[in-house]
């Protein structure tokens, strides 16, 4: 029996980067019991523009937007099972963690972090897999 596959979107259209910038991805895909989210960078929810700042600022903005996307689709941060964190520089690892642990204070999901080249001078990108409702 094939798994059901549907596109998931944030309730706040400003946060639908895929549609706004006409990039060939979806904010997320629901496949069976799992939600697979595209990588998210720091975006201002009031206007949909990239929101540059310190590692702490960008990390917080992404995780708040991720919470919004998940909750728009019946899921939540505590249903996240796997996270990939991509940092512009691994020297900022502790700065990212200080904010990250506020959003995943207990039984945190599986996670891998690495240092990569990111676009537009942004400092961090986060993707995740979560359980659906």
């Amino acid at each position: 029996m094939p798994l059901n596959r549907t596109v998931i979107e944030p309730a706040n259209e400003n946060l639908n980067v895929s549609r706004k910038l006409k990039i060939p991805h979806s904010p997320g895909i629901r496949a069976g019991d799992f939600l697979f989210l595209s990588g998210m960078v720091s975006v201002d929810p009031t206007n949909g523009e990239r929101s540059h700042g310190t590692m702490a600022h960008e990390t917080r903005q992404i995780l708040e937007n991720m919470r919004h996307l998940l909750e728009s689709n019946g899921s939540s941060l505590d249903r996240v099972v796997k996270v990939n964190v991509l940092l512009h520089d691994m020297l900022e690892f502790d700065n990212m963690n200080a904010v990250y642990r506020e959003f995943f204070p207990t039984d945190a999901p599986a996670r891998t972090t690495c240092g990569v080249q990111l676009g537009f001078g942004l400092k961090i990108e986060i993707e995740c897999v979560a359980l659906a409702s």
Binding site: L87, M90, F93, A110, T112, G115, V116
Partner: peptide, 12 residues
């Protein structure tokens, strides 16, 4: 990629 703690390999 750049890895944590100066390691040469990581796998998930």
């Amino acid at each position: 990629v750049q890895l944590p703690y100066g390691f040469r390999f990581q796998a998930e």
